[in-house]
Design a protein around this nucleic acid. Structure first.
Lengths: 210, 210
DNA sequence: ATGTTATTAGGGGAAAACCCCTAGTTATAA
DNA sequence: TTATAACTAGGGGTTTTCCCCTAATAACAT
């Protein structure tokens, strides 16, 4: 019997997951939570083998919740559940200690397979994600990973809120010139060529929420 | 007994919905479909009272599918299921003939309530949507609804793909000046002040997909 | 028929974004 | 201790966006 907890702030999706997985004989749903906080609060009292963790949530996100859960109990296995097949955040999630990665558009059987695989001590990644990783590895094995700095993430989030360079400079108490530097570094690192593309890239890479 | 069909291209969400609603004694799931096309193909052979219709789908979207279903059978009731609480597309969906509007983050009980209400011949709208409509009505009762034209929607979608004014003019075989006119009309009608805001507005209003 | 909207396209100019460049300070890692 | 990276900020320039204006043609509705 595999004890599974579910953390996702979408009621219907979570309730659906609970019901779908409850049908499986070998899976036992020990709890479902609508936030990282409520999950961690109940964490001590539950016997959990595997957590299905949404990455994008209001309040504490899946990456933070995964780090904290792993620090409380390193044996726990976490499978990230996500909407998009994008570049940057599965690395963050893997670094946080996740053992698997499943897309929300995956079906029941893929999800059960992922749970079984991870419970046996393995890893599971959706095909689409593996493909993305493989292509990325082939295409850019010489390029070093261009990660956004804290300040750049801050600026990116303000850009996505629709603030102009001038407005951002006023919010962050820095000169417009500095914001310009951040802007162009963000565009270069993200490999996007204008703000429209950047906003969509930021959403897919979990830097901002719509 | 209420015969319900579900149209949504997210496997897990749809499977979840099926299971959640199957638990209800008065609800009978007669079919679930991953696209507007597959739904309409099966439409003739099924006895459907109510359709839970996702608005945002690959291929034919929920608005088109709703229009076609209503033209085939005007008695059918459609409840739109959607991710965002935004301005423009519930009007489109209502014009297409929808009787209800439920957010994806709604819980099981709200959804069942919506189905019952619509089946009785009424309408159902999530609180958040009613609030949005009410505030909109109060704030802008003199302003007439500024709807985007076909060409503007075309331009908007190209903007969201990250094309510059020059590139758009080349794709559409019109002058840059004309594209500029469309751009500024889109910004004015959407009441957004730059491209970053516009892209997010377009996503929320279902003009483009991420 | 006559008004409205959509689509097209121009002139002209202000503002913002974008792209070079240098360069100082601070912090962190080798 | 010495690179390396992050954050800061300026000069100077091009390109793009955004905003004002006029205006013609076509389509559609009252």
């Amino acid at each position: 019997m595999i004890n599974v907890a579910i953390v996702d702030d979408h009621e219907m999706f979570r309730e659906g997951l609970v019901l779908v997985l409850s049908q499986e004989d070998e899976i036992n749903i020990v709890g479902d939570f609508n936030s990282g906080d409520s999950f961690l609060k109940a964490f001590g009292e539950l016997d959990i083998d595997i957590v299905l963790m949404d990455i994008k949530m209001e309040g504490m996100n899946g990456i933070e919740a995964t780090k904290k859960a792993k620090s409380l109990n390193p044996d726990i296995k976490i499978i990230a559940v996500t909407m998009f097949v994008e570049d940057s955040y599965y690395m963050q999630m893997l670094n946080a200690g996740a053992h698997g990665f499943v897309l929300k558009k995956a079906g029941k059987y893929e999800l059960v397979q992922a749970i079984q695989e991870v419970h046996k001590g393995g890893n599971y990644f959706s095909q689409e994600i593996l493909q993305k990783m493989a292509f990325k590895a082939i295409a850019g094995k010489d390029e070093k990973e261009q990660q956004l700095s804290k300040r750049e993430i801050e600026v990116l989030q303000l850009i996505c809120k629709g603030l102009s360079t001038k407005e951002i400079s006023e919010v962050l108490f820095i000169s417009q010139k500095t914001v310009e530097v951040h802007r162009s570094n963000i565009l270069r690192k993200s490999d996007q060529k204008n703000i429209a593309q950047l906003v969509i890239w930021a959403i897919k890479n979990n830097y901002t929420t719509i």
